[in-house]
Computed example of a mutant assay.
Amino acid sequence: MGRQITIGTRGSQLALWQANWVKSALEEKFSDLSVELLIIKTKGDKILDVPLAKVGGKGLFVKEIEEALLDGRIDLAVHSMKDMPADIPEGLCIGAIPERENPRDALVSRHNLPLAELPRGARVGTSSLRRSAQLKSVRPDIEIVSLRGNLGTRLKKLETEDLDAIILAAAGLRRMGFEDRITECLDETVMLPAVGQGALCIESRENDPEIGPLMAALNHGETRTVVLGERAFLNRLEGGCQVPIACHGELSADGGFALTGLVASLDGMTVIRERLSGPAAECERIGVALAEQLLAQGAEEILESLKETDENNNR
């Protein structure tokens, strides 16, 4: 008799692609394993007519799936790593991080114009405060238009809502076969990615003897090192999904690790950015140290003002 496990996932096309990728990878590596998917609707999926920042940022796309993991309805959860809050509920852990896809942000332009050539006052769609703050920093003339919905919906809105361009994660476009829609992969000097962007998070219960070997088989050591460094940076800043925080790490051939981090004001007028490097084995220490540098340079005041705004919006 073969083993059977259940993966919890959101129901969007991209989420299902990711969950099915994990299912196929597991069934290929473990011939006695049968994997089924359970679609779970999250708060972020239910509220589509309000900007994410006004809904409340932490755990919007993961909380209900994590509850199913804790109560045993599912054995694994597959998330986009960039949707994962800094804090993970007690009893759960990041079981595996497979090899990362392209982490950069992509501009999809209606007339195939790169960011630098968009007309003055161009309308650009994004639901991310991180993206909009960095856009305003390099192109203060641009009008930011709130953009919600799944990948297909956002691509349609480029036409139907009279937008000049939209910004999406390159990883999602590549995974869904829309790579040909990318006008420009934005350089990290212009648009630093979200923590964990392009990586998957396979979440599991801690110390589960049945699941542990499955996670070990899917984990990609180099990606895990980089992402854990980025998440240590996020955790020190106590950042949720909807805060203008960006971070990206890179490994070098000689065992080094370099991390670039950024905190920006909502209007893009203040951007605090630093880079720190050290041994890859100290990735999490480097993440915390980089966050401390930014806090000392004014990021603390930016984050406190955002927290006050968030509390006022939720009263």
Rank of each mutant, 00 (worst) to 15 (best):
G2W: 01
G2I: 08
I7C: 14
G8P: 01
G11Y: 07
L14E: 11
L14V: 10
A25N: 08
L26A: 08
E27F: 10
E28A: 10
L33G: 08
S34M: 04
S34D: 15
V35S: 10
L37W: 00
L37Y: 06
L48V: 08
L52T: 11
V55E: 14
V55F: 07
K58W: 02
L60K: 11
F61D: 11
F61C: 00
K63Q: 09
E66M: 11
E67S: 13
L69P: 07
R73K: 08
S80C: 12
S80Q: 02
D83I: 02
D87I: 05
I88K: 00
E90V: 14
C93V: 14
E99T: 06
R100T: 06
L107W: 07
V108L: 15
R110C: 09
R110I: 04
N112G: 11
N112D: 12
L113E: 12
G121K: 12
A122D: 15
S127Q: 02
S128V: 12
S132P: 06
L135D: 14
S137K: 15
S137T: 09
V138K: 11
R139F: 05
V145H: 03
L147I: 13
G149Y: 02
G149K: 05
L151H: 07
R154S: 02
R154W: 14
L155C: 00
L155D: 04
L158W: 10
T160I: 00
L163H: 09
D164Y: 01
A170E: 05
G172I: 15
L173Q: 07
R174D: 03
R174A: 08
G177R: 13
F178D: 13
D180F: 08
D180W: 11
I182R: 02
I182N: 07
T183W: 05
C185A: 04
C185R: 14
D187G: 10
D187C: 04
L192R: 01
A194S: 10
L200D: 04
L200I: 12
C201A: 12
E203K: 05
E203P: 08
M215D: 02
A217L: 02
H220F: 05
R224V: 00
V227C: 05
V227H: 00
E230A: 03
R231T: 03
A232S: 11
A232P: 13
A232H: 09
L234Q: 14
N235R: 12
G240D: 10
G240I: 11
C241G: 14
C241M: 13
V243D: 15
A246V: 07
A246E: 03
C247G: 06
G249R: 04
E250F: 01
G256L: 08
G256D: 01
L262E: 12
V263D: 13
V263K: 03
V263A: 03
A264F: 01
A264L: 04
L266V: 11
I272D: 00
I272T: 00
R273E: 05
S277Y: 10
G278D: 08
G278I: 06
A281K: 03
A281L: 02
A281G: 04
E282R: 06
E284H: 00
I286P: 04
A289E: 04
L295T: 10
E300R: 14
E301S: 06
E301N: 01
E301K: 02
L303R: 06
E304A: 06
S305R: 12
S305M: 07
E308T: 05
N314C: 14
